[in-house]
């Protein structure tokens, strides 16, 4: 699978919530785009990510 265009090793499908933590993101600072839409946070624990998925993870940085 790809995260932000970079290959990410995934042997078997994984829940989005687990994947984010495993890949080193702060889950409370991101928005996740899959299939052209932002995945609602309430769906993170039920959304399975498969080897052919392309995720875009927007990791917000501070300042405003």
């Amino acid at each position: 699978m790809l995260i932000n265009g970079q290959p990410y090793p995934l042997d078997e499908s994984r829940l989005l919530s687990e994947l984010l933590t495993e890949a080193g993101y702060h889950p409370d600072r991101v928005a996740v785009i899959l299939g052209g839409r932002v995945v609602p946070r309430t769906d993170w624990e039920t959304t399975a990510i498969r080897a052919d998925d392309c995720l875009e993870v927007i990791a917000f940085v501070g300042g405003g």
Partner: peptide, 18 residues
């Protein structure tokens, strides 16, 4: 979204779109 903190930014984007 014009917040300062990254968690607040993500919270607004995720909550509003949902």
């Amino acid at each position: 979204e014009a917040f300062d903190r990254p968690d607040c930014k993500a919270e607004l984007v995720n909550t509003a779109l949902a």
